[in-house]
Amino acid sequence: MSANDVGRARDAGAASDSIRLETLAAAVAAAARTRRYGSWYVAEHRFRVMRSYAQTVLFTAIGSPLVYLYAMGVGLASLVDGNLGDNAVNGVSYLTFLAPALLASSAIAVASEEFTYPIMLGFKWNPTFFGMNATSIQPGQIINGIVISVAARMLLTCTIYYVFMLVFGAVPGALGVVAVLVALLTGLAFGVLVMAYTITLKDDTGQLAMMQRFVILPMTLFSGTFFPLDLLPPYLQWIGWISPLWHGTELSRVFAYGMTEPIWLSLVHVLYLAALLAIGWVWARRLTVRRLNK
């Protein structure tokens, strides 16, 4: 117990007699580390859990770039480039055009996995979050810890994806590696919203599967992933504008092959994604406080 703890205790308006002050100071000291590092302790727990399915994490992280880049980027690309020439889309080859979008989609895929069923699990099916909440941990720290751990898995997945993109020769831009960070931002911005929505569910009666089918899949199709957004009829283009994936994909392309767009638009991409991340994060924390305080 430090003098600082006693000071904090006194500031908190403890009774003046020394025994009570000592009690309070001891309590403050006992919880001090968790108040500071609690989010990391939660992340540590999540990493241990992830280790139990590490094989799946690695298999998808290596398998999906291999399969997608080959099937789409090489297979489909030969068809597109064959018809439209070497500078098929956006002035670059189809593979170069497509790869940054697939990278961002891979972050979305991790998000839609980690921010759905594991959240439902922790609140309901195997309510470990209630167990954490009974310790010195606070509800907001549970959310922070989850975000930290998922960010780590996402970064790993995206980095491996990027390495495969290099191997496939899909990254002409010098700043290509920044696309990995853009993908991370995209995945998290979308993910925290999905997490917040999942926390509002008392029961999963198919909502999470519906979200896969009716939100995530259409979002992938209409976010300028496989073809530029302006090829869509104007009345469908709004889907891209509100889609975090479109913003992430466009920004990735700027870094991956120097796609030209106005600076203000690139700024909008960053701000939009950052805003979603902030809103979703705060919302998820609040919902958690409410849900754990029964």
Binding site: A27, A31, G131, S136
Partner: peptide
């Protein structure tokens, strides 16, 4: 909350072991 909980042991009604 955290200060109190740091000095408690809690056995909940519903097992929430991981």
């Amino acid at each position: 909350g955290p200060e109190i909980r740091s000095q408690l042991g809690v056995v909940p009604q519903e097992n929430n072991l991981d």
